Simulated assay, not measured.
Amino acid sequence: MLYHVTDWDDAYANTVHIPQGEGFFARWQDASARFRDAYPPKALGRGHLFRPDGPARGLMVFVHGGYWMETTPDLWSHLAEGALARGWAAALPGYALAPQARIAQMVHQVAAAIAEAAGRIGGPIVLTGHSAGGHLAARMICDDATLPDSVAARVTGCVPISPISDLRPLLRTAMNDRLRLDPAQAASESPALLTPRPGIPVTTWVGANERPEFLRQARLLADIWAGLGAATDCVVEPGRHHFDVIEGLERPDSPLMERVLG
């Protein structure tokens, strides 16, 4: 069957294609507020750093999504729960949003937050993120010195969840009025068009019930980076859509958390 996109705005729309999609944001807000009450975070620039009881086994970084235009780490605090339960610290970087910032600026802000967290937490570092945050997580391990070498040397895995790995299709969407991408910037900030650092395993993770573009984008990154020598996998989780595919991060024994920390 031919795959042909004729409505690029709809291709990247999620809420309208998920039953009761609008309700997820209120639930996340409540869950995150309760989690911060139980586990008060330390400040990390625009974001948060959660520490486990006792010495941390390592540092998990979760980069939030929102199409680089919406949300803050406050909406996603509860996703640190699985890591903390396993004795890991969890960093949730914040970054300036479009249109006030361009994606290249966000990349550098996230990298700076990770470097700051790495200076406060020892051990291995694993990177994950969702949607636009999946893009930013993957962007961290490109070989253009986005992360300082000393920090990148500690990264033992990267799991972009439902990532947008090639930004060029967004040039055809209305959201680009705020993102302000041009063809050169879309290419220079697309992980799928860049080379990964060697030695870091990469798993893209996506829900089987997601929009076809997110399935394509997840497979694209895994396939292209495998061709560049990276150890890659693409996991399509049955029954999951774009909003509930991240829920495994709340459970220390979920398949997603096993892959992130494994």
Results as ranks from 00 to 15, higher is better:
residue 121 I to D: 09
residue 122 G to W: 13
residue 124 P to K: 11
residue 125 I to A: 09
residue 126 V to I: 00
residue 126 V to S: 04
residue 126 V to W: 01
residue 127 L to D: 05
residue 128 T to Y: 12
residue 128 T to N: 13
residue 130 H to K: 13
residue 132 A to G: 13
residue 135 H to M: 00
residue 136 L to G: 02
residue 136 L to K: 01
residue 137 A to D: 09
residue 139 R to G: 09
residue 139 R to Q: 14
residue 140 M to Q: 15
residue 140 M to I: 06
residue 142 C to Y: 02
residue 142 C to H: 06
residue 143 D to H: 02
residue 143 D to Q: 09
residue 145 A to W: 00
residue 146 T to R: 07
residue 152 A to E: 07
residue 153 A to L: 07
residue 154 R to F: 05
residue 155 V to Y: 10
residue 156 T to V: 11
residue 158 C to P: 09
residue 159 V to M: 14
residue 160 P to A: 09
residue 163 P to K: 04
residue 163 P to R: 05
residue 165 S to N: 01
residue 165 S to Y: 04
residue 165 S to M: 01
residue 165 S to E: 01
residue 166 D to F: 09
residue 168 R to P: 08
residue 171 L to S: 06
residue 172 R to G: 01
residue 173 T to L: 03
residue 174 A to D: 14
residue 176 N to P: 06
residue 177 D to Y: 11
residue 179 L to C: 07
residue 184 A to Q: 12
residue 185 Q to G: 14
residue 186 A to L: 05
residue 186 A to C: 09
residue 188 S to T: 15
residue 188 S to I: 05
residue 189 E to C: 13
residue 190 S to A: 12
residue 190 S to D: 10
residue 191 P to S: 14
residue 194 L to Y: 00
residue 196 P to K: 05
residue 196 P to D: 08
residue 198 P to L: 04
residue 200 I to E: 07
residue 201 P to N: 08
residue 202 V to E: 09
residue 203 T to K: 02
residue 203 T to R: 12
residue 204 T to R: 13
residue 205 W to D: 00
residue 206 V to F: 13
residue 207 G to D: 07
residue 207 G to N: 11
